[in-house]
């Protein structure tokens, strides 16, 4: 088995057998999906078209923003990366493989939601499956990048929670998930535009529902794409093998640069 395959297989299995990761990848988001969809469809039947995009973005947020960073930080703290380094494991594998395997779990959970929502809650399926795939890929890509970046720059698991919540909670509240962007007051809608979920929902609402490509959607796609690329690039640049060896190529504050495409999006959206 090649090194990549062996590493990938191990990380993928870890996402299932490690209880906190299993919780973040499947148990919590899928339970949330069932409970919230049950409640919301009873209270507000117009919620049905929002179930798939909302819950898919929610899965990405829990597994990739809340779940992915912590194992990276604790592995660095426990000296696991030192073991990897002295055995010639490249830094890129240490960053990318957990991101890829968590993305796989996110994809699986997202597909479970997509194909059960119409049966369980009479949610409409996406009209344009190609656009749905684009929405899924971009959402997973940007949240994976942000998750890895949080894992790379956090100095401890406690700080990780702070950084993760800085994205997770606003995304839920003002990022177009629980409340549609159109229902938010101006300032809140603007602040919500700093969250990747806003752009994901924008892409789904237009393209996946069969509407044509408009400027807002193109902007949303660009923001997510550039945000993801920037997040992975910064994570790779700022990666440190060792919590005892503080040598880093740049200040952890450089990570704030990942907000640039979202700030531009906030101005233009």
């Amino acid at each position: 088995m090649s090194a990549f395959a062996s590493h990938f297989a191990f990380e993928f299995r870890t996402g299932l057998r490690d209880r906190p990761l299993l919780l973040m990848n499947y148990l919590f988001p899928l339970s949330f999906y069932v409970v919230v969809s049950l409640l919301m469809t009873q209270l507000n039947p117009t919620f049905r078209p929002s179930i798939i995009p909302t819950m898919v973005v929610f899965v990405a947020l829990t597994s990739l923003i809340l779940g992915l960073p912590n194992p990276l930080v604790s592995a660095r703290e426990a000296g696991i990366f030192r073991s990897y380094r002295v055995n010639g494991i490249p830094a890129l594998s240490v960053i990318l493989i957990p991101a890829l395997t968590t993305a796989m779990h996110t994809l699986i959970a997202s597909l479970i939601i997509t194909f059960t929502a119409p049966v369980l809650f009479h949610a409409p399926l996406p009209v344009n499956w190609g656009a749905f795939a684009l929405f899924l890929v971009l959402t997973i890509f940007v949240t994976a990048g942000l998750g890895v970046l949080i894992g790379v720059i956090s100095t401890s698991t406690r700080i990780t929670i702070l950084w993760s919540q800085l994205i997770f909670l606003p995304s839920i509240i003002i990022g177009g998930l629980m409340v549609p962007r159109s229902a938010l007051i101006g300032a809140l809608a603007k602040i919500g535009s700093l969250m990747p979920s806003t752009y994901s929902v924008q892409i789904y609402d237009t393209l996946a529902n069969g509407a044509g490509l408009d400027a807002k959607t193109i902007l949303s796609m660009m923001v997510l794409l550039v945000g993801g690329v920037l997040a992975f690039a910064l994570a790779s640049y700022l990666f440190s093998w060792d919590s005892q060896n503080t040598t880093r190529r740049g200040s952890a504050w450089l990570a704030v640069a990942v907000a640039v495409p979202f700030v531009i999006g906030m101005v233009l959206l």
Partner: peptide, 24 residues
């Protein structure tokens, strides 16, 4: 190493396969 570790859920057999694979 004096202080190092492996992922908590990695089995002994997995560790051997994993590191051997990276060394080719």
């Amino acid at each position: 190493l004096q202080t190092s570790g492996l992922p908590a859920s990695m089995t002994v057999g997995e560790a051997m396969r994993f590191f051997a694979a990276y060394h080719g």
